[in-house]
């Protein structure tokens, strides 16, 4: 159980928040709004999984928000052009994967610092999208709304889909050799090399996977609204990184789990609606998010130092 202590403590904080809500504002627990909230966060969860894996290999990707926008608009355009959803999904995944490949090649092959590479692709992709689309919204056909299902069913499907994807990735990270390599490379790339693992290859795969997940998330986003607006996803990178850090993924690599990311994201996602229900000024949301990130990193710092003795 010691292994899960960090995840459990985040869940504990989330539980406290929910208990407070149950006591002060039971209205929070109405099914439909809650369902909408979770469905809205489903794409962010998928993206956060990808970002968490990138952090696990001791890299960072701040371009996910832009990748997400590009994939969303791309998927929207295809859908509007009459493509069936079954064709849109793989193409969006492919598009996201190739964006991830670009980042991955620059980082893993050229050995450039990932923070600067993804800063550049963040700006370039965002502006490139604006250049091509001129801020135009994409009107989506009715048939792909909620995957063609009634709204509630569609929401359920998105939520379970996102969680299932997370579970699958978490399983892979835990039970496939390549998943363990992600941890090994993040923990000590040189030791990994000596153990016969190719760190560059693992890094590249992680970035590509990150992009592919963003593609999936983009489709999950597109089916939730009648239009795609090109600014969708700006700031998503920070939300995803915050969810990972709060959920206990160490920024120094090699430590953390996707279940922690789930807990972290839920905590961050519940703050805004909880504030509404608790009649706290909603404009404090970002400040509180910032404080949570700082608290998480401080807890982590103290824990690290205690473990390293002295």
């Amino acid at each position: 159980m010691n292994r899960w202590i960090r995840e459990l403590s985040v869940l504990g904080v989330l539980g406290l928040l929910l208990a407070l809500l149950a006591w002060r504002a039971p209205a929070f627990f109405q099914l439909q709004p809650l369902l909408s909230l979770l469905a809205r966060e489903a794409p962010a969860l998928v993206v956060a999984c990808g970002v968490a894996m990138v952090i696990l290999v001791r890299q960072i990707d701040i371009s996910v928000g832009s990748q997400f926008s590009v994939c969303s608009v791309f998927a929207g355009v295809l859908a509007a052009a009459g493509w069936p959803l079954a064709a849109v999904v793989p193409v969006a995944v492919l598009a996201g994967g190739s964006l991830g490949l670009v980042n991955g090649l620059l980082v893993a092959w050229l050995g450039l610092p990932s923070i600067v590479v993804t800063l550049a692709t963040l700006v370039a992709l965002r502006q490139g999208l604006n250049l091509v689309r001129q801020g135009e919204f994409v009107n989506l056909p009715e048939r792909i709304q909620w995957l063609g299902l009634p709204q509630a069913q569609g929401q359920w499907l998105l939520i379970t889909g996102a969680v299932a994807l997370l579970a699958l990735l978490a399983w892979g990270l835990r039970h496939l050799a390549v998943g363990r390599w992600v941890y090994a490379v993040g923990s000590d790339a040189e030791a990994a090399r000596l153990a016969g693992i190719r760190p560059r290859w693992v890094t590249l795969v992680t970035f590509v996977l990150m992009g592919a997940l963003t593609g999936i998330a983009a489709v999950m986003n597109v089916v939730q609204s009648p239009q795609v607006q090109p600014l969708t996803g700006s700031g998503l990178e920070l939300k995803a990184i915050a969810a990972a850090v709060v959920g206990g993924v160490a920024i120094s690599g090699g430590r953390g789990s996707l279940w922690g990311v789930l807990a972290g994201l839920l905590l961050l996602a519940c703050i805004a609606p909880a504030m509404v229900h608790l009649r706290i000024d909603a404009y404090w949301e970002k400040a509180i998010q910032g404080l949570i990130i700082l608290a998480a990193v401080m807890v982590e710092g103290v824990r690290q130092r205690r473990n390293h003795g002295r």
């Binding site: 920070l238 990184i241 915050a242 850090v245 404009y283 404090w284 949301e285 970002k286 400040a287 509180i288 998010q289 910032g290 404080l291 990130i293 700082l294 990193v297």
Partner: peptide
């Protein structure tokens, strides 16, 4: 740290 204060200051 500055990611946290990025959010905090704007918030």
């Amino acid at each position: 740290v500055t990611l946290g204060t990025y959010s905090l200051f704007r918030g």
